[in-house]
Design a binder for these strands. Structure first.
Length: 669
DNA sequence: GTGGATGAG
DNA sequence: CGCTCATCCAC
């Protein structure tokens, strides 16, 4: 909300009749460009947006022709619709039956899902039948997003000339200023020297008057007072270079990875983003500085980022319009008095196309969430605990992808959100540092947080649970070599049957002893988690059926109460430990040492552990699941038999393990 | 630091 | 819609 400006409102040199001798820009402005200064009037920002991203991912993965109408399904809804399908009037918020009616030829591919005990997400036929036991995974799209980002970074020059911000799974901002500065100096030696008299406020000479080739881009019309044959200035040259860079980035993404995207090129992030949405798909739009007024004037201001929600509604109500053009008439004092000083000032500038926000050179995420909405609701702690297992497996596998194993980054905080009716509650806890993160550790903490929420009361029926990690910290130096060495040392320590850390917390054992660091004592937890079997009959038929089906796949991981009639009190730890952990948590009698992990394991899990390594290696060799074609797909996911429950293993060995029900939690490495 | 609200896609 | 991600702010 800086009140720098208004550079573009007036020229330092009167645009009289005929040709100005000098540029409107100075040597100082040119120098600012090299630093990507957010106040530089020559600055060039691009926004790149993948077209119907999830749909494109599935199209690429399954080698579906691009003209084929294709939508991505999530349970009963559609979350992405490709452009051929949009011609049939399909949009989001449409049911799959309506969609099929409008476009009988439509392919609806369901997103990948997980269920309890799965090693990894997988694509399932008839996924909707498993809504009670599975959660969706958007991981395939995150992985593709990562490849595309890597491709973009690869075609751009090395940092700091390159500045890329990942704005979402399918969007990036590029600050092209530095790169363009270097191109300008190279191509136009006349401005590469020092300023005359060493005075940075000297105006630059004008660019050579060659007519610019704006190519095939959608070029936004000029403001009414400008004329098309007006001589170009350096901002025009710069933005045109920006457009050429973006064109080459898009071509690389297209040729190497088969994805189309749309882009906007402008002087700031806000306009670049409006630009990328202007013409889709597979097009790019240049919004020159002198076209900004014309471009902005045609929009509803509710299209501007941050004005799409309650704030936008508030402005509409207080000023009686949703048009940028009409709100321009409101004086800044009125905006400030009605919206507050800060917000009013921000709105005043933003509708004039002024946005000085930086492109943060950031491509890594700051938090990670795994969530599930329950329909119908869940009503018992043990159901919730089972979902925690799935969330933990999901998050752990994504942490592995983030490089947490190599100690590149690690989260500090784990939190659990819970919704009952309209009420949302959450609890969080720190993830102890100094030891590797694994599923057992995360599950242990998550389970404890659930206990806290449950004893606060009013936990059931629960309509939504979300487990997240955040507060990511960078590893020691970002240096992989020394980092992984240290981690291995820590891991070996943590794997010892009974190891206390500096705080006296005992690791390597399940928490069957009181623990001072917990906010709850086990007595309280036991009270609220006892006698779960009395709620069994409250499960819906669908849930019961699916739970039994899942249980039959993994005999040692059955729900607690049913088999143990002799126990009337089930602790959280027992519920947790009964599956994966069972052998893990007992002091092993014989152990073997895994060179790959640099740590000890119970001999009983040797075979499984080595299989797990093998599976991971095979998987790592595959650059992407999307590089494979999968011709055996049918036109829809409905109507198939319910027996296809076993996940596609990543190899035969894994598959066998899963059938035996032995493959549970992955042992942390 | 924690937990809730808002906003985007 | 359901599932993510990010930011802001009162406490």
């Amino acid at each position: 909300m800086s009140s720098s400006q208004p550079f573009f409102a007036s020229s330092p040199i009167s645009p009289a009749a005929g040709r100005r001798r000098k540029s409107r820009f100075t040597y100082k402005h040119l120098a600012q460009l090299a630093l990507s200064s957010n106040t530089c009037p020559l600055r060039v920002i691009a926004h790149i947006d993948l077209d119907a991203f999830y749909a494109q991912c599935e199209g690429v993965r399954l080698c579906i022709p691009e003209e084929q109408p294709l939508a991505v399904q999530q349970w009963q809804g559609l979350i992405a619709i490709n452009y051929p399908a949009r011609k049939f009037g399909l949009n989001r918020h449409i049911t799959i039956t309506e969609a099929r009616k409008l476009c009988p030829d439509l392919i609806m591919q369901h997103v990948a899902t997980w269920k309890e005990g799965d090693e990894k997400w997988a694509y399932h036929k008839d996924a909707f039948a498993h809504i009670a036991t599975h959660k969706v995974s958007l991981d395939p799209y995150r992985l593709e997003s990562r490849r595309i980002l890597a491709c973009i970074k690869d075609v751009l020059p090395a940092p700091p000339l390159q500045r890329v911000e990942k704005a979402s799974v399918d969007e990036v901002f590029l600050d092209l200023s530095s790169q363009i500065h270097s191109i300008l100096l190279e191509r136009y030696p006349e401005i590469s020297g020092p300023a005359p008299y060493d005075d940075p406020t000297e105006f630059l000479p004008r660019p050579p008057t060659t007519a610019l080739d704006w190519n095939t881009d959608a070029l936004v019309d000029l403001d009414s007072l400008e004329t098309e044959d007006d001589d170009p200035d350096w901002d025009d040259i710069a933005i045109l270079l920006g457009s050429e860079i973006v064109r080459s980035v898009r071509a690389a993404v297209r040729e190497r990875l088969k994805y189309t995207c749309s882009a906007g090129i402008a002087r700031n992030k806000m306009i670049a983003k409006l630009g990328s949405a202007h013409k889709k798909p597979n097009q790019q739009t240049i919004v020159r500085n002198r076209a900004v007024q014309q471009f902005m004037g045609g929009f509803k201001f509710t299209k501007i980022r941050n004005l799409g929600g309650k704030l936008g509604d508030e402005v509409v109500n207080k000023f009686g319009t949703d048009q940028v053009k009409e709100l321009l008439a409101a004086p800044i004092e009125q905006l400030k008095s009605k919206l507050g000083d800060d917000t009013g000032t921000w709105v005043y500038h933003i509708i004039r196309g002024e946005d000085s926000s930086e492109v943060n050179a950031r491509t890594q995420i700051k938090s990670m969430l795994s969530a599930k909405s329950f329909r119908p609701t869940i009503n018992t702690s043990e159901q919730a605990v089972r979902w925690l297992r799935i969330f933990v497996a999901d998050i752990q596998s994504r942490l592995v992808e983030e490089g947490v194993l190599e100690n590149k980054r690690r989260p500090k905080v784990l939190s659990l959100h819970h919704r009952q009716g309209a009420q949302m509650r959450s609890r969080q806890a720190s993830i102890p540092s100094g030891r590797p993160i694994d599923e057992t550790l995360l599950f242990d903490i998550a389970k404890n947080l659930l206990g806290q929420i449950v004893i606060d009361g009013r936990a059931w029926p629960c309509s939504n649970l979300q487990l997240s990690v955040g507060g990511f910290e960078d590893g020691p130096t970002g240096n992989r070599g020394i980092g992984s060495f240290l981690v291995r040392g820590e891991e070996a320590k943590a794997m010892m049957p009974s190891t206390r850390d500096a705080d006296g917390y005992e690791w390597g054992k399940e928490n069957d002893e009181p623990d001072k660091r917990r906010k709850l004592d086990h007595g309280a937890i036991q009270h609220f988690f006892s006698r779960q079997e009395s709620h069994e009959e409250e499960l819906s038929d669908a849930q019961n059926a699916d739970l039994e089906e899942a249980d039959s796949l993994s005999p040692q991981d059955t729900g607690p109460a049913k088999q143990d009639e002799d126990e009337s009190v089930i602790t959280l730890d027992e519920m947790a430990g009964r599956s994966a952990g069972a052998s893990f948590h007992q002091a092993p009698i014989t152990t073997y040492f895994c060179d790959g992990c640099g740590k000890k394991f119970p001999m009983a899990v040797k075979e499984e552990h080595e299989d797990w390594h093998l599976a991971r290696e095979l998987q790592a060799k595959e650059k992407s699941i999307f590089s494979r074609s999968d011709p055996h797909r049918s036109a829809s996911s409905s109507g198939s038999n319910k027996k296809s429950v076993v996940a596609k293993g990543s190899n035969g060995a894994m598959q066998k393990k899963m059938e035996k029900g032995q493959s549970r939690l992955a042992f942390g490495t």
